[in-house]
Design a protein around this nucleic acid. Structure first.
Lengths: 235, 235
DNA sequence: GTCTATAGTCGGATAGAC
DNA sequence: GTCTATCCGACTATAGAC
């Protein structure tokens, strides 16, 4: 039984008969779509991996693509649970009124560390992260589900926190771009991992590597936030 | 003007009869494998796009996978031509003897700007970049061709330059990880572009965005390089 | 070297038994 | 709700004409 973490078997969903099959397909889709992509994952693979049969896919989800979209919706749901909390904290702080630079800096470190946890943490990138990345570089219809479901909120929070620290317009391009660059530093340890591992001469990320990655990222983030505002354009 | 189309039709390759067909397939593969991935690209698509026929693929390359490997080999060849130059300069400087921190800092900025040119520049990420990224996150047999063909060298140069600037062991993990983090900041504008574009409220990257991205990246790189060495482990 | 025709396989979706 | 059997289209690779 492979699936872990994101895939907490939600017992509430298993009440009705048939929900077990539905859920099993969802989990198999999460794993296989992440590993091989939608096109390369056959309904037969899904049926075997889930312990069901090919006919169950059109029955529950209309089609293979329907299953894929349901998987993406499930990812959004679970993302909320995982990185939602530090995000909510930061959001509440900002909405509650003024937030100091120091607080914003701390919130950024915390939020980005949460992402680093997801991206760096595990030996093998989690299947759902791969799905998200694939949608980023080659968006399908399902990208909207991801973006409006969760990503947009995270982007906004990051940009606003950066804006507070560096004294920028939170709606301006510089805040957005700088937030994106910060986030990218973390992302790189996920998407360009294979090359990194070869350079480190290791098959997987060792604990010593992970520890140093966290420290390097924290230091770099801090350094970047010390850089002053770039654009002083008059309106 | 940084990097231009990887796809320069090399006339020298078109001498013999049949080389035109071979080359046409190579170009079609570059485009279609980048756009859809290997599995999702059919031999029919390749034949139509190249103006040839399906039988030409096994004839020249043995199989569709053979064509893919040939495409990856071609990418390495062209990468050498493009980002090779600033890399060679930096390498020669280092091999020639001592290199000052200021020189190393300049070389890093130059080298990373060359990558930014490739990654940020065009509206649509070039097809070959997508192939490289796909191999990073889900390496196939072809990854070796990429890694030992070009990437390894770039990694080494970046790590050594970082080591000079920050006073680190060029073979140590910190230099490698910090170089990787710097590179990632640039990479993020390629792999997470869709989300960024939505945040910017734009269908494509505008010129004003590109300009600001360059400035932000340059500033961030400089800021990160000012951060002191982290590890002071005794041997 | 090029291309058409075709073999042989595997894909997704469906029908209908249980 | 579940599952087997099956349809039919799309796929890769090959055979063989030109």
């Amino acid at each position: 039984m492979p699936i872990k973490s994101l895939e907490k078997p939600d017992q509430k969903l298993l009440g009705k008969r048939g929900e077990g099959t539905r859920y099993a397909l969802l989990m198999a889709g999460l794993e296989l779509f992440g590993e091989y992509g939608v096109k390369a994952t056959s309904t037969r693979m899904l049926a075997e991996s889930s312990g069901t049969n090919v006919a169950a896919i059109p029955y529950y989800f209309g089609s293979k693509e329907g299953l894929y979209k349901a998987v993406v919706g499930y990812i959004v749901e679970r993302m909320r649970a995982h990185i939602g909390e530090p995000g909510r904290e930061a959001q509440q702080m900002m909405e509650a009124g003024k937030i100091s630079k120091k607080q914003a800096r701390g919130a950024l470190q915390q939020l980005l560390a949460a992402f680093a946890g997801v991206f760096v943490e595990s030996d093998e990138p989690k299947a759902w992260v791969r799905i998200v990345m694939r949608e980023q570089s080659q968006p399908t219809e399902a990208f909207d589900i991801l973006y409006y479901g969760q990503m947009q909120r995270v982007q906004k929070i990051l940009a606003r926190l950066v804006a507070v620290v560096v004294d920028l317009d939170p709606e301006g391009d510089e805040a957005k771009l700088r937030a994106h660059a910060l986030f990218s530093q973390i992302l790189g340890f996920l998407v360009a991992r294979e090359g990194l591992l070869r350079q480190l001469g290791s098959k997987t990320l060792q604990e010593k590597h992970v520890g140093m990655i966290y420290r390097v990222l924290s230091m770099h983030i801090d350094a970047c936030l010390k850089a002053p505002a770039l654009s002083e354009e008059e309106p």
